[in-house]
Amino acid sequence: MARRLRIVTASTLALLLIATLALGGCTTTAEQGGATIGDEEAAKDASLQTVKERGEIIVGLAPFYAPFESTNEQTKEIEGFDIDLMNAIVEKMGVKATYRPAEWQALLGGLEKGDYDVIFSAMSKKEAAEANVEFSDVYYLLPDVIIVAKGNPKGITSKDDLKDKIVGVQLGSGSEQLADELNPEIGFKGLKKYKLTQDAMNDLKAGRIDAVIAGYTFALEQAKVDPSFEVSSEPLESAELVGVFRKGSTSLVEAFNKALAEVKADGTYDALVKKWLTIQQQ
């Protein structure tokens, strides 16, 4: 520190004061929407460089939502549409993907803490809208539907038929948000919120609730593996599924979007949709 001490004259102080005021003015302008903060953030953005130097992108996900991501009971490996799509994207980026499973409700907090670089777990813009994050381009449109017991004993064929019914949804999901919006309009008898959609399905099977609101592909997968369920309605609302990144990860998001576009252009994306998401209902 001793080498940095200088004798400061009155004229020097004046110059320093002018410079400080000028810099303060720039900061204020940027905070009000000017380009300065954007330039500063871009200069500090090392998100892509960090991933490149590490040679991997760390992916947070909740592997409880087949066919997007789930744990194979035989191999114990996480598999699904999101896994295959992410692997194809990161191959284009020249890195590998490392997956870190977490509870669904903990994903956004883990991203904020820096536990992973991206959430890629059938998460919609709506589900992450209140978090301080950035989104990739939309990679899939997932409609929400009503799931009922086989034979539809309560005669539920539209959202209006949910009046005076007990409805189940997954806590923290887009389906929960949709149900919260529909309830005042329609008037459910009850709205039960579960840690996992599968828990709601179990209660539906046991007759403790009348219907479940969930994603269409998940619903068809459940109907395929368990004939106790069926989809009873046309889509209620479509969710825009995206990769979710920490705020300021602009360079990483741009590289991700470029790779996603390449995967769509070369036919890989369509092949994965056919493999995982094109399900014939039994």
Rank of each mutant, 00 (worst) to 15 (best):
L17E: 03
I18P: 00
T20G: 12
L21S: 13
L23E: 09
C26Q: 14
Q32S: 14
G33K: 10
T36S: 11
E40T: 10
L48I: 07
I58W: 02
V59M: 07
G60S: 12
Y65G: 05
F68H: 15
F68L: 08
S70H: 08
N72A: 09
T75N: 03
I78C: 02
I78L: 07
E79M: 13
G80T: 03
L85Q: 08
A88T: 10
K96L: 07
R100Q: 08
A102I: 00
W104P: 03
G110N: 13
L111M: 01
G114T: 05
D115N: 13
Y116H: 08
V118A: 00
I119E: 00
E127I: 09
E127T: 13
A128N: 06
N132D: 11
V138D: 12
D144L: 14
G151F: 10
N152R: 10
P153Q: 04
G155W: 07
D160T: 13
D160Y: 13
D161R: 06
L162Q: 09
I166H: 13
V169S: 10
S173E: 09
E176K: 12
D180E: 15
Q198R: 14
Q198M: 12
Q198D: 15
D203S: 03
A206K: 15
A219L: 10
L220C: 04
E221I: 00
E221S: 09
F229N: 02
V231C: 09
S233W: 03
F245A: 06
G248H: 02
V253M: 01
V253I: 07
F256P: 01
F256G: 00
A259N: 03
D266H: 07
A271Y: 00
L272G: 01
K275H: 06
W276Y: 15
L277I: 07
L277N: 08
T278V: 14
Q280Y: 04
Q280H: 05
